[in-house]
Design a binder for these strands. Sequence first.
DNA 1: TATTGTTATACTCTATAACTATA
DNA 2: TATAGTTATAGAGTATAACAATA
Lengths: 157, 157
Amino acid sequence: MTPPEPPDLSISDPLGAMLGFQLRRASVAVMMALAEELATLGLNPGEASLLLFIGANEGVTQSDIGRAMRAQPANLQPLVHKLWQAGALDRVAGKGRAIALSLSDEGRVLCEKVSRAFARNEARITRRVPAERRAEMIELLRLICMDACRPGGRETE
Amino acid sequence: MTPPEPPDLSISDPLGAMLGFQLRRASVAVMMALAEELATLGLNPGEASLLLFIGANEGVTQSDIGRAMRAQPANLQPLVHKLWQAGALDRVAGKGRAIALSLSDEGRVLCEKVSRAFARNEARITRRVPAERRAEMIELLRLICMDACRPGGRETE
DNA sequence: TATTGTTATACTCTATAACTATA
DNA sequence: TATAGTTATAGAGTATAACAATA
């Protein structure tokens, strides 16, 4: 169920021929590698992603960023708090109880480092993917995600 | 961070162009869909996978199946216990403290149902993947997984 | 009052360590 | 004593519900 190790033994793997499970195994392995890459910055993938989202959408409200990241507000809060405590964020009150998030100078530096860590991870992943297949693969994964999310399943085309 | 919902808003998604994150999002969506498909059988993906592994390797020892599934022995135990309590498994003592697992008649029936649920899930996934790309994609994911697992990272070719 | 953020909390999955039992 | 399995437990990630604060 946890996929780091290579297949090892000679016993039959009924899941190996399924795209769904190779997806999961690849995903877990990739996230573990990313976590390792980010460890030197003292961030986990969630915190680092948040930083990238804020950097790409400065001044946007916390709840909008949360929706874009597909994170529950309750789970986003500790990440925002940590980045803010680390001095990476500016939080300015918006309308209602809204808070607009943006990067501090310090945050911008950290964001640049995070960006490079993500790029290294991406390079490691795509090393084996032919360049002309990469965009196609991303698009297929996007479609798979959208299809799988649909609640009922199996409707016509 | 949890990927069910479609992208929704007009704010920039710095992760959308990365293969690594589309992998993760697709994987989570696919596992959620599978969990839904399996719910009618009273099994979660882990339990169902275990059943498939035992069905494909009858009489093999529990620890070997655990290694093939990349599961920690401690996490495998409750799954085996549940399947055994449900009457799906036969457990016969092997050498040492080893236990050889195999399917009961009842287990074989359940395994067949699980197999069909996995097949439905796989069909939903691959609906958008051109048939001639499927094997290639599985192989690429396998390579990505192996590359990402390698501890150091970024070594020469 | 509607929206946004915060707190508390619970559930699942995974990991580690210590213990038990058997060739 | 080496191996296989079990138990207890801890941590991460994610989910829900209730609450607080502000236009």
